[in-house]
Design a protein around this nucleic acid. Structure first.
Lengths: 187, 187
DNA sequence: CTATTTAGTTAACATATGTTCATCGATTGC
DNA sequence: GCAATCGATGAACATATGTTAACTAAATAG
């Protein structure tokens, strides 16, 4: 869990007491490859820090399974819109690999927000961080070609990509698996 | 500014003292149509509440001017990534119509964060709200056709769209103006 | 280890959007 | 009010991606 404190440390200083209140609420959980952490339609109960593994966010459709985001090691993830509004999630969260995470429940996080000097600040920073990433993604989806997005992924996450099936990558960059095969031939 | 308190009121209760601290820091500003509120490369100094008007976020490129987002009345806007990191903005912020806004500077907002019980919570909620919107947009960009995005805009913001030139709408939905003309013919 | 299932590749054809260029209409500046 | 500029439209052709379907390779279950 030292990784989590490091993660926070990059933008805020947490004193030992606040850290104790927060970290005591964390629950460790491990999931095998392919397990579904959160099912579409159910409320997200947790904000989770991914210590080990790769996660995908997907919408299971009639014709095909649509992956629109990933989470990698040493980051927070959640069906955050569901978590924040406490309404059913629009999507699944699944483990691509075996995963280990540390998570805090909605109720416990409310407690942290209410009883530490730093809770809302951390929540703010987490949301701000997620927002900045989504802005970058928005620009990429509007400005770049699928090929550019694929090349960017290759250069930014090369070590992790070998664990992600191409069909998931394809829908993440906005195309079908057949088109990704086509693109790969031209590299 | 009652609109701003209403905006907050939807997710948090602010006592009068905190509201006084926050609202006293707000500066009213008016900009004529087509004026540039923030120039690419400069640091965003403000978080702004748009009381009146329509704003666009754009990247001026060599070949064409690329609009990737809008802000409508009664919402907060900012070059938030620039604001948060206090680094140069990747994009411009421009007024499409005459605009009236109420804004708080980075420094003053830091003061509010430090001296109210509710500052970080508001900052958190604003960021969370922005994040949820961006998630929706991400799904739309990946799953929908340009035509679907155009039709959604027409039904969600019909009264405002008549003030936005089509070339801005086109780049917002990810296509060229010529393609939007083509789509409009098929409606 | 083998049989079965799932993932990835390839190709042919269909569709959506891009690019270029010409035209027409609307706005703006003087 | 007129000239100049800018925005919208349309057409012809180019390119990227989708769709379908057949085939091959890889992963998984037994």
């Amino acid at each position: 869990m030292e990784k989590i404190r490091q993660f926070f440390g990059e933008f805020v200083t947490i004193d030992d007491l606040d850290w104790e209140i927060f970290s005591s609420k964390l629950e460790r959980a491990a999931f095998p490859k392919k397990s579904v952490i959160l099912e579409q339609g159910k409320k997200e109960r947790f904000l989770s820090f991914l210590e080990k593994g790769i996660i995908r966010f997907n919408i299971p459709k009639v014709d095909y399974d649509f992956t629109f985001a990933f989470a990698f090691e040493n980051t927070f993830f959640s069906a955050y819109d569901s978590f924040l509004t406490q309404t059913g999630s629009h999507y699944n969260i699944e483990c691509i690999t075996d995963c280990v995470l540390h998570r805090i429940s909605y109720k416990d996080l409310e407690f942290v927000y209410a009883n530490t000097s730093i809770g809302d600040r951390i929540g703010r920073k987490v949301a701000e961080d997620l927002y900045v990433k989504k802005m970058k993604r928005e620009r990429s989806l509007l400005e770049d070609t699928a090929k550019k997005r694929y090349m960017d992924l290759l250069s930014e996450q090369p070590h992790l990509l070998k664990y992600i099936p191409q069909k998931y990558l394809a829908s993440y960059i906005g195309i079908r698996p057949q088109s990704l095969s086509r693109i790969r031939k031209t590299i």
